[in-house]
Design a protein around this nucleic acid. Structure first.
Lengths: 240, 240
DNA sequence: CCATTTCGTAATCTAAATGTAACCGATACC
DNA sequence: GGTATCGGTTACATTTAGATTACGAAATGG
């Protein structure tokens, strides 16, 4: 089931939304301040973010901007919930990378319908990532290779998850450090090499000839797309 | 450029939308009745459909239903434009498979922003540069020639990417060094020659008679525009 | 509190990539 | 037609990037 992060300072509206969305089967994680919103998203990895614009301590627009900058969050749909109804407010919100802009007061059921639209076309938010004999289950944090369970450490898992979530795309060490270790990291970029090595020793049939994780000299690493195909788990159920 | 089908019976609004959307670079094809709307879409194969709900001769909701049933049209985003603002109207519209539901009166620029959102997700996956049989994928850092993968070094790739991204434009060695090697380079300009050579040996059918990379004596080099066409042309305009 | 696992760094090694000099051939210009 | 210049090409020394190993610190968990 889909996980939603809700950032909303109005306690009444927060409770109302939480109640209604959970009743509809969503998992709600929320904060009533904008302060640690981005960190919250990095921890929770939600499937969607509901964002108030006017927060007591920070600006929802800035949060959205921050989300779009972080490579591991950039693909997550963002819906603004706000009282700001002017034309420029709407356009600024939408052009900042938000996927919808809903003006308060709104109908809860319309919000839910609009949330579901975000999930409709999206095959990429599924819980399982597969590539040949390799299966990664995001919700249970387990990895299997040809049915056999593998034991990966937390960092190894996050690194593999990130690479597998965008097969074919090459990431620099810098990007991987940001995505897996966090922006406030104090880690050398050579560390990435070591983790790539450890991953390969666990998942590759022949670590000397890696087929799954590709080194792209001068650029970084990527998960091999030819081998990978994403599991389309509940996709069919949501289809129009 | 993206093609939009507009079904709207109000002649004034129709003209207003047509004018504004065409000014924004969209190709507009429209009808003021709902009668042949589905046939129109099958002929035109638009990238998006704008649909009024209350039409003199038929119901926009039925048209949307019809679009979602036809397999060759089902994937096309539909946006409702309507005066019906009630909660049930909105929910019915959205749950029927529409991608957005905009209540009249609305801001034209907001409509345009919402149209662009529909196009946003699509092209972002493949940032490809093409020129005849030569394909360069920026996100996976791969180059193929007639389907066959080529192995380029990092510098070769960046040089080719830069040249292909601005076909026809002649760059001096100085400019290429700035763009590919960086401003803080400590490299002779003859180095460019060597890399052009290495590139030609890999991508040209006959390196002695280069067709793709043109030497412009006294000025520099350029990628031949007659051969090149950018794949995802208007992508940049929609960028987040 | 101790054993075990996980984590990050430094050092080393190797193959590939890089940049330069030198030489050759073509072209433009007088 | 001669010559100066520019671009093409080759060969080679140097540099760099990535793989790998080993090790101590930190976290974890019983």
């Amino acid at each position: 089931m889909k996980k939603i992060v809700l950032i909303e300072d109005d306690a009444d509206l927060y409770a109302l939304l939480k109640y209604n969305l959970e009743k509809d089967g969503f998992i709600l994680v929320g904060a009533q301040t904008g302060k640690g919103a981005i960190d919250l998203c990095r921890r929770e990895r939600p499937d969607l973010i509901l964002l108030d614009i006017m927060l007591p301590d920070s600006d929802g627009l800035d949060i959205c901007k921050g989300i779009r900058i972080h490579p591991e969050l950039a693909h997550i749909p963002v819906i603004f919930l706000t009282a700001r109804a002017s034309e420029t407010d709407r356009i600024v919100g939408l052009e900042l990378g938000a996927n919808d802009y809903i003006v308060k007061p709104f109908f809860i059921r319309e919000l839910i319908a609009r949330i579901k639209i975000q999930f409709r076309g999206q095959a990429s938010a599924s819980r399982m990532l597969k590539a040949g004999a390799l299966e990664l289950d995001r919700s249970s944090c387990r990895v299997r290779l040809g049915g056999q369970p593998l034991s990966l450490t937390a960092t190894e898992f996050r690194l593999l998850e990130f690479l597998m979530s965008r097969p074919g795309v090459v990431f620099s060490r810098e990007q991987l450090l940001d995505a897996v270790w966090g922006h406030d990291r104090a880690v050398t970029d050579r560390t990435v090499d070591v983790y790539i090595l450890r991953l390969r020793q666990k998942i590759e049939a022949d670590p000397a000839n890696p087929l799954l994780i590709r080194s792209v000299r001068g650029f970084g690493y990527s998960f091999n797309e030819s081998v990978s195909q994403e599991a389309v788990a509940e996709r069919t159920a949501v289809t129009v």
